[in-house]
Design a protein around this nucleic acid. Sequence first.
DNA 1: GTCATAAATGACTAAATGGTCAATATTTTT
DNA 2: AAAAATATTGACCATTTAGTCATTTATGAC
Lengths: 235, 235
Amino acid sequence: MDFSPEKMLFEVDNSDESFAGGVSLATKPRVRKLTSRTDKRVAKTRTKLLKAALEVFSEYGVDAATIDDITERADLGKGTFYRHFGDKREIITCLVGDAIEHLISSLNNYKTKSNTIEDVLEQLLDVHYNFFIENSEEFILLFQGRLLLKLDRKISEQMETPFNNYLQQIENHISPFVSEKVDIIRIRRLACAVAGFVFGFFSFTMIGIGTDEIATSIKPLRQSFVRSLSVFLAQ
Amino acid sequence: MDFSPEKMLFEVDNSDESFAGGVSLATKPRVRKLTSRTDKRVAKTRTKLLKAALEVFSEYGVDAATIDDITERADLGKGTFYRHFGDKREIITCLVGDAIEHLISSLNNYKTKSNTIEDVLEQLLDVHYNFFIENSEEFILLFQGRLLLKLDRKISEQMETPFNNYLQQIENHISPFVSEKVDIIRIRRLACAVAGFVFGFFSFTMIGIGTDEIATSIKPLRQSFVRSLSVFLAQ
DNA sequence: GTCATAAATGACTAAATGGTCAATATTTTT
DNA sequence: AAAAATATTGACCATTTAGTCATTTATGAC
């Protein structure tokens, strides 16, 4: 079974027929309809694995979590994991990619008449706030500091990581609303500040308080933060 | 050998003498001067272990790092590790405690005529900035998100963690400079915002830029951030 | 120097985790 | 319904890591 999202409607099976059979049968390649029951089962299994992995990673941390943790949580055999993912690294990449995609699409779907830079910044913080509340496990996964820190040392030059993608997306949202004179570096700093503020604030805030309390405390702080960011840009 | 910092000058050795020797010698307990060569060696070994562990933890992450990584980095035998620390958890606790103590003492030693809340906030950000530049390994250790996140789930009620200590210290610094009317909860939020902002900003900023660049970009942002935080408090 | 005491060592065992594959269960084809 | 194809399983082995301890090395007391 091919798991790749391309060719998801029909699949031509061109695997070798026995040579002894001659050429007559070779003219009729076997065509199989996909999205059948099997495919649903495969998709369901994969989803269960991803869900379990997200839970486990956000509870124990990506390094501490084991494959057994994941398959037990998913109530699946260990071999099943290896049929769907090469190793832990692969499922992490997949989950992080999904999470960032999710976050970015929240950003894009946010209905607003953003005309000023302050609107956009408020929107950014709002989206992150909602993402934190509604998808805390994905949030936690993204915020496992290690990922950020290792970049600095190991993959120094290879900058196509999800986090850079994330920062790039924030940059894209901000860019249209600042004057052309503002240095791109400065916008990137702004993106770092926004991402850092939100991630950092929520992480610290998480220590022992409920979401209600967060909601009442983030609002005025958000306004102040937005104001200071616009001042930063205007300088 | 006793590693505790108390009784560091003299130690009375009251270990059992052989009963066969009679009572005559028992009246003269053996006194041994400490801070001798042995003690220096022990201290040096311990220091090497802590230094190596800090390096390894900040490079690989606390979960991924192994005891072998630490002892090899320290160029010491594995058994030596277990003579000084019960397990990995113990050395982490020790390092995190040291790092926060270090950060807090930077805060206390900062010479300034802090009279206004703005002074204090500028000082807070300044101290964190310097700490980040001069002790990036400790900074990284503190910021391994996992520690924060696990708190929420495992040690929910046991609030005597280093991070809460850290937040408490920040609160202590801020409190004297705000009017009595400001809710303590609000101050704690402020502490979270400061800690989150600094940690988060630097973490994201670390991706592929040098310290010079950070210095030039943090300054204006710091000023506006401070200004807006005071407004936040005045509300 | 010699002996006593404590620290450091690293080969070793125990335990945990990663990864495989022959057997089983499910689905599709005929 | 039987056979073919594919997904799932979990016992199994390989590798890694934690932790131990008899031995070696360094230091202090005499």
